[in-house]
Design a binder for these strands. Structure first.
Ligand SMILES: [Zn+2]
Ligand SMILES: [Zn+2]
Ligand SMILES: [Zn+2]
Ligand SMILES: [Zn+2]
Lengths: 156, 156
DNA sequence: GACAGAGTGTTATAAAGTAACACCCATGTC
DNA sequence: GACATGGGTGTTACTTTATAACACTCTGTC
């Protein structure tokens, strides 16, 4: 994700979509959950639960407990508003909530950005590989470590 | 992986291949590292570092520290003898050490088995998806949760 | 206002992983 | 044989990540 974009926009968009989706589903996007979502979206980098916790403490002055954050994150993941990056123990905002998908990520080792791709080819290949072995897919996880375009250019 | 196979064989094979590979590379598969590899291979299920630690204590009577196990696992992963399953914080023996690959796994939610597949289609799809976005792949992670063949049959 | 159920707060604890530093021991060198 | 070297291991303490148990609060419904 380019560093040169109006990220305020990304955040605002994400919150608006979240409001709409939750309203539509009858899910309760409470003040706390909305705030945690906003903090997850504070960048395009995956953020750890404890980093978010610290933000809550420092920016909001509320000394919340870990569970508070974990419960909010659990809700957000269930609603598909946030994905968990397993290989980083961290969370990142979903680029396309609403559609059902499990998330495929290109994680840059240099800048830490996690670009979400929902590549049909990758999805299809996984389904095919699993089907060939009689395996019923429930939740695929794809997390590709490497170097993003701009970091390759920078390091030259 | 079927529960009905001579697993002693799996373990013995794995150790033999590990001996050969390490000898070939000049890597030191010490007694401790070999023992940890054996414990990782004690089943086809991914095992946590602390589970292995407990085995070491109980079976060998040695009250080892966590670091002991983590260091051995680090070596084994570097040598490609063991893979780490990110979504489980656990380790499993590699089915095809020697070839360079990063591991793709079908993880059964019911029995816990992790079947390693190195599906060329999945690998190619990931490379293609990344290339299309200018991303240079270093280490892909594919971990598919679902139900394995035998567990689907059992639950009917 | 009473009620039920979802959400939150609080305290304590478990699980997973790492840092710093000392020691051992095999190997190669003088 | 004495000696330096470097990889491997042991030990202690600690950090980070995640969950359990239980009490309280809010919100909508009757
Ligand atoms: Zn942005
Ligand atoms: Zn998504
Ligand atoms: Zn493998
Ligand atoms: Zn199974």
């Amino acid at each position: 994700m380019s560093a040169l974009h109006d990220h305020t926009h990304c955040i605002a968009d994400a919150l608006t979509r979240a409001d709409a989706l939750c309203a539509e589903r009858g899910a309760r996007l409470t003040a706390l959950r909305r705030r945690v979502l906003e903090l997850v979206w504070s960048s395009h980098r995956p953020r750890g639960a404890y980093a978010i916790l610290e933000d809550l403490s420092q920016q909001d002055g509320k000394a919340a407990a870990p569970l508070t954050v974990y419960r909010a994150l659990e809700f957000l993941v269930e609603q598909g508003l946030v994905h968990r990056i397993e290989s980083l123990n961290a969370y990142v905002g979903c680029a396309a909530p609403g559609d059902v998908h499990s998330g495929q990520f290109l994680v840059c080792e240099a800048c830490g950005d996690a670009a979400e791709i929902d590549d049909p080819g990758v999805g299809a290949a996984i389904i095919a590989a699993a089907a060939g072995r009689g395996f019923r897919v429930q939740r695929p996880t794809v997390e590709v470590r490497g170097l993003c375009k701009s970091c390759q250019e920078t390091s030259r």
